[in-house]
Amino acid sequence: MTRPTPAQLEAARDRLVPDVVADGLSVLFCGINPGLTTAVTGHHFARPGNRFWPVLHRSGFTPRLLAPAEQAELLTYRLGITNVVARPTARADELTAEEYREGGRLLERKVARLRPRWLAVVGVTAYRAAFADRGARIGPQERTIGSARVWVLPNPSGLNAHWTAEMMAEEYARLREAAGSSEVAGTA
């Protein structure tokens, strides 16, 4: 993929990025909000340097490294992607507290409708803001949304440098094991 120009990035601020979802997923991954590169391409976690796709593969969720443009293939593994907030921004700190809270309310409705087994929020700060849970830590949460269990994962952004790709893959693998590895990997 060629890097988007500054003009393309700016023009993408009003674009919505469609979710990659289906009913009854094993894990619905939930990003904070689309970055501008994601909004330009229409593919989740598309910014170069974002470690979501490599970590997803290293943790055993996918049998090979998928490119962002192959995001629809996630559905064959009973995985999906959505976001807490739909509005694309250059940085997550451009979002308001109200956007997080409203995003949390909308996410609860979406999860109740889609009924994934697990909701995996990638970013503890986003989870805390969206669900008013200041004490949340990385890992499984006590909270459920509908019948879905909730797991908070480290944010795969390259800006989250204190989490190496290896450390993230270990945490993502913990979720994969909890969700049932054969089911999630599509071998059930």
Rank of each mutant, 00 (worst) to 15 (best):
R128W: 06
Y100P: 05
T144I: 06
A132G: 05
D19R: 04
N155W: 12
V17E: 05
A86F: 08
P140K: 08
I81D: 02
V27S: 00
R117T: 11
T5H: 12
G180T: 06
S26R: 10
P6V: 02
M167L: 14
L153Q: 07
A90D: 15
A46K: 02
A90M: 09
P18M: 06
A92V: 14
H44E: 00
F45T: 07
A7M: 06
V84G: 01
R137E: 13
L16Q: 13
V152D: 00
I145E: 04
V84W: 00
H162E: 12
A188Q: 12
A7F: 05
S26C: 14
G49A: 00
A67F: 11
A72D: 15
A178Q: 09
R91M: 12
E94M: 08
A169P: 01
E73T: 09
R87H: 08
K110D: 09
E73V: 09
N155H: 15
W118M: 02
A132M: 08
P4K: 06
L16E: 14
E166A: 13
P63W: 01
T5M: 10
P154I: 04
H44N: 03
R137S: 13
C30R: 08
R47D: 13
A161C: 11
T82H: 04
P18Q: 12
A12P: 01
E70L: 06
L16D: 13
G186R: 01
R51D: 11
T96D: 01
Y127S: 09
A165T: 11
A112P: 03
